[in-house]
Every structure is written in C-alpha cells, then in structure tokens.
Amino acid sequence: MTRPRPALLVLGAGALALAAGTVGIATAGSGMHVESVGARPAVSASIPVAETAPSSPDAPSSADAPALAGTPYRTLERRDATELPRPDRTPRPVELRIPAIDVRVAVDVVGLDAAGQVEVPVDVARSGWYRFSAKPGSGEGSTVIVGHVDGVDQGAGAFFDLRSLKPGDTVTLTRADDRQVTYEVVARERFDKDRVPLRELFSRGGHERLTLITCGGPFDPASLEYTDNIVVTAVPVDSAADLGETR
C-alpha cells in the first residue's frame, strides 16, 4: 500500500461493509490486498506435470514411462508434434447464477478495449466472459467473468453484492450446450487497482477455477472510477475438497 486510504471517504461511501467472517491475508496467490477472505490456489504450484519424476532408482524403463530414474531430468510432456493444434470447441458460458446473492444473469462475450482493459458489458444487469480466458469445464486455468458493481446512471449492477460472497458459497455457470459447472467460492479479495495480480487472475494455466471481477472500494469522483477491484475465486465443487488444506 503506497496510497493513504482516507477513513472519511470510506465511511461516507459505505461501500466497505464486510460480510461476517474471518478477514485475513491470503497465503496462496499473490498481489497486494486491501483485504481478503480465504485463499486462491497458487497458480505456479498447480501447473500439472507428468508424474514421471524419479520415484525409485530401480524403476523399470518402458516406452510409456521414460526412464529418468537416477537422473536429474524430469519429463514434462511427450506428444505427437505432427498433430496440428485444434481449435478449442468447448462451449462458452451463457448464464451465471449465484444463489447466495440472488444473482441470475446472462453472460456475454467480452474482449479488450483500446486501452487493453477488459470490456465490461454496458448493461450493468449483464456479465461478460473474457474471451481469452479458459472455458468452464476445460480442466485447466482461470475462467474470468466480469460485471459492473453499478453504472453511471443504471444503479446497482449484477455484481453489486459480490463483496458479500464468502468461502463455501456456490456459483453455477451454464454453457451454450446446457451443461452446468458448479463452483465453490474459496477466496474473496479486494485489491487496489494498481496492485491487481492480473497475470495470475487471468492465467490459463494452473488449477481450473472461476474468477469473478468487479469494482469496489471508495469511488473516486475525480477519475469517476472505483479505486479497487473485488475478486472472487471459486473452484469446481468436485475439486474443492482437494484444496481444503490451502483454505
């Protein structure tokens, strides 16, 4: 934190009301928090690798398991390079539901604006899937959905209550093929916009996860922007138990 945060403005804005629950500094992931609840899975520690690391010096060699026992080498991947990369046909998300805060909104496809920032749907009642992020159910990486906390003249937005989500709350995405993927919240964080760990939050590597992003913190009437981003991280319910120890 390099910038002083004025208590007067914070109280006046009334935007910092916290859900009951523990507030602490997350140990996984990174970034400079204003506040956080729970913990994101660390991206770098969860990049999947082939389990062919040396396990036993007597391990037999075979074509299927490259024999690296007793060497300092670790096999990460073997593939047929003559197979050209195929387009990802996984269907995109079309609807987002968050029962705990009564959210059921359409999901548009959003990209980048001229400044390289994520486009957020103008209609604050809709949300946007960042088209360069992972698709739900793809098995790896961050699926990013953005939504307005409010609009200039539209009142509260779809993600107004994102600030009150807590670990254990569920989030369900419906894809274009009607398949549903349900996630469990593992972390809620608030970052100064200058300190958001964008590379990690948007990484298509690491544990499969859902990342919901909106604005929060004090509203700066000079820049007409909120000073912070609120980020909620959720993991597929099937794998939430596996991450228990990091929560």
Binding site: H148, V149, C215
Partner: peptide, 9 residues
C-alpha cells in the same frame, strides 16, 4: 485492468 463501476450507488 477491469473498469467495472460507474459510481451510481
């Protein structure tokens, strides 16, 4: 970045 607020609330 993610500019996701207008300030109306």
């Amino acid at each position: 970045g993610v500019p996701a607020g207008g300030g109306s609330t």
